[in-house]
Amino acid sequence: MNRGEGKLSVVVDRVDTITPMIKRFSFRARDGGELPRFSGGAHVIVEMPDGEILRRNPYSLMSDPADPSRYAISVRRDEAGRGGSRFMHEKVREGMELTISMPVNMFPSDRRARKHLLLAGGIGITPFVPHILELAAAGAAFELHYNVRTREQGAYAEDLARRFGDRVHVYETDLGEGFDLDAILSDQPLGTHLYVCGPKGMITDVIGRASEFGWPGQNVHYEEFLAPQPGKPYQVELARSGITVEVASHQSLLEAIEAAGVDAPYLCRGGACGQCETAVVSCDGQILHNDHYLTDEEKASGEKIMVCVSRFEGRRLVIDR
C-alpha cells in the first residue's frame, strides 16, 4: 500500500444500487491487508481515470469505523455535475482497481459533547452512518433526525431505524413530514453538539435558527463540502511553471493544473481545508470565490484563490503556481 504518498490501492468489492439515484461502493485493500482506521465524518478522494481526464472527487466514508476490512461510500448521481458521479455510476464495476486517498476528516464529532444531535437531509446521511456507529459503540448519547423525500429514497433509513430504535427519527417530506426544528432546538440539554449535513438550504436554515435560539457557534457543526461548480471556460497563466492552462467548463482550476502535469497541494477538494490556497500574481477580471475558507476580506482583496472550487471570469489571471 502506497501510504507514504497518502494514497491507497483498493479493489471495488461490491456495488449496490440503493435507489435509482444512489449507488453504494465497497472497497477492500488490494494487498488483502487492513485499511487504515478512520473516524466518523472522514472522507476519501476517489481517483477516476475517465479517458484522458483524471477526476478526483471527495466522498464521505460510510462504513463502520470498527471494521478495517472494508470502506464504503455512497454516490448520488448528479446529471448536472462535472461527470464524477456519472463515472462512478456508469463505469465502476466490482473487481475494478482504484486509487483513493488516505481518510481525512473535516467533519469530526466533538468528544466533549454531553449529547450529539444529528440532522440529515437526503444523501447528507452518509457521514452520519459512521458517526452513529462510533457513538453507539462508545455509549455516547445521540439523536438523529433524517428528512428524506420518500421511504424508498431514504437510503439506509430502515437499517438505522431498526438498529437504533427511538434514537432515529425519519421524516418523509413527500408526505408533508419533516423535523420540527424549533421543538428540537429548544429542548436539548446543555453541552449538546449539533451536526447538520444535507442540501445547502437546510444547512443554512439549521445554522440560522440555532443561532436565533442562542446556540453558540462552537456547538454547531456542518459538513462544509462544496462540489466545484461548472462555469464558463477560461485561461489561467501559471507564473512559476511558465505555462498557460485552459480550464474547461466542467473542469475545476485544480483539475486543469493537474492535467497540465503541474503538482499542486490539496486535501478536501471542496473549498474547506485551505490546503490549495494559491497567491494571485495579477488579475484583470473577477475571481468567483466559491470556497468558505478565505475570509470575506481576503476574497475582496483578490490576493488569493482556492483553486479547488473557485473560478475566474475576465481578461487575464496569473497565479503563483
Binding site: 507514504g4 497518502g6 487504515p36 488516505m102 481545508c273 485551505g274 490546503q275
Partner: peptide, 11 residues
C-alpha cells in the same frame, strides 16, 4: 497551525 490542522494520517 494551518499545516498541523491539515496533517494527514500516514504522513
Amino acid at each position: 497551525l494551518k499545516f498541523l490542522l491539515n496533517l494527514q494520517h500516514g504522513k
